[in-house]
Computed example of a mutant assay.
Amino acid sequence: MKTRVTLKNYLTLPEGFYTVAPNLVYIVRGNTRRFVFRYMLNGKRYDKAIGSVSKVDLTQAKNTAKEFLGKLAAGESLLKTKKEKLEEEYLKDDTPLFKRFADQTLEKIKDVKCWLNEKTYTNMVKYFDTYVYPVIGNKRIDEIKRMDVLAVLQPIWITKNETAQKIRTRLENILAYAVNDGYLEFNCALWKGNLDQYLPPPSKVRTVQHYTSMPFEELQEKIGLFLPTNNRTRQIIVFTILTACRVGETSGAKWSEFDFENNIWSIPPERRKDGKPYPHRVPLSRQALEVLKSIERTSEFVFAINGEEGSKYSLTTMFKRMTGTNATMHGFRSTFRDWAAENEINDSVAEKCLMHSAGNAVVQAYQRSDLLELRRPVMQAWADAVLALQPHGQLSEPV
């Protein structure tokens, strides 16, 4: 929300750039507070100093700005004295480079948007370091044009469209701040009526890559490769399959999230992909509990490696190597969904098992239950089916 500059607060506002009135900017930098009249002439931005607060108050600055606007409207030139030219150069020299402005603004966006996952921020910083800063990082923020944004996006728009779209969205966010701070007159990262005239629509170039899933019958055969569950890799792979959860949900699991009295695992909001502000409850089958009971508690993390949270990124690679297939860990969620459909599991129940929202907005508004007790027999039936080819349908031989 933009801060309104008033007679009561303009002498105490924190450091920053504030739009006071049309073309009138109030700049607070360190111990200096000054009014500047900004205007465009022949496509170029000019800054004309009005004065510091020690010489000009807010009312006088507004009146001066109106006077300057009148002169421009009448076609008069706002002639600069030598002192004014030096002042203009001083203001320009202090204009930040795009990289510095973007770094600071990404921090603001993270706080304003309330990003719950720190990786959202770190990934965006990585994207900017790789694709944006090498192209326009050393340009002044007030010099950024549409051609600069296109120079960033065009090389990756076709080959890495999903990444390019994320970058464009963040560029639009950042340049919106630049417009509000008076550096730019127009947000040149906007899509509609701007970049859409130069780049093909995402729907025409983006290829949706679905995760490779394993047919259910093959899963029944391959699951034996991970039994007994006597190491961390086997434990997390089997547990993830039996719970039909995402690897990112299981890799960060903590012992404190498990209610062994009621056989429930509560995945906290910060690991929910759907962003819901409450835990997602997973009913645990006998076999999933058996995996947990086979793990020695050496850390707060269930699947800890050297006391730290296990990595989710290497599991698919290891799974492919161990099974000799191209199936991914995430693909087992599709395998579960296909199995549920073939066994006539209620759609709403099946979707709740996958932490998906079922039905349209009206249905979701009325269906607030997580259907936990309806999901219990489904998850048990899933575990029994997955292990049906194993001796006694268990993870190991009974003692």
Score class of each variant (00 low, 15 high):
Asp94Ile: 08
Asp94Glu: 15
Thr95Trp: 03
Pro96Phe: 04
Pro96Asn: 05
Leu97Met: 09
Phe98Glu: 01
Arg100Asn: 08
Gln104Met: 03
Thr105His: 02
Thr105Gly: 05
Leu106Asn: 04
Leu106Phe: 09
Glu107Arg: 08
Glu118Val: 13
Lys119Tyr: 15
Met124Trp: 03
Met124Arg: 07
Lys126Arg: 15
Tyr127Gly: 00
Tyr131Gly: 01
Tyr131Pro: 01
Tyr133Phe: 15
Pro134Ile: 05
Ile136Cys: 01
Ile136Arg: 00
Lys139Tyr: 01
Arg140Phe: 13
Lys145Val: 09
Asp148Glu: 06
Val149Gly: 05
Val152His: 04
Val152Thr: 03
Ile156Ala: 03
Trp157Asn: 05
Ile158Tyr: 06
Lys160Asn: 02
Asn161Arg: 02
Glu162Ile: 14
Lys166Gln: 14
Lys166Ser: 12
Arg168Cys: 12
Arg170Gln: 10
Glu172Phe: 01
Asn173Tyr: 15
Ile174Pro: 08
Tyr177Lys: 04
Tyr177Arg: 03
Asn180Gln: 13
Asp181Asn: 14
Leu184Met: 10
Glu185Ala: 11
Phe186Gln: 10
Lys192Cys: 01
Leu195Gly: 05
Asp196Tyr: 03
Gln197Met: 13
Tyr198Arg: 12
Pro201Asn: 04
Pro202His: 08
Ser203Val: 13
Ser203Met: 08
Ser203Cys: 09
Lys204Ala: 15
Arg206Thr: 14
Gln209Arg: 12
Tyr211Gln: 15
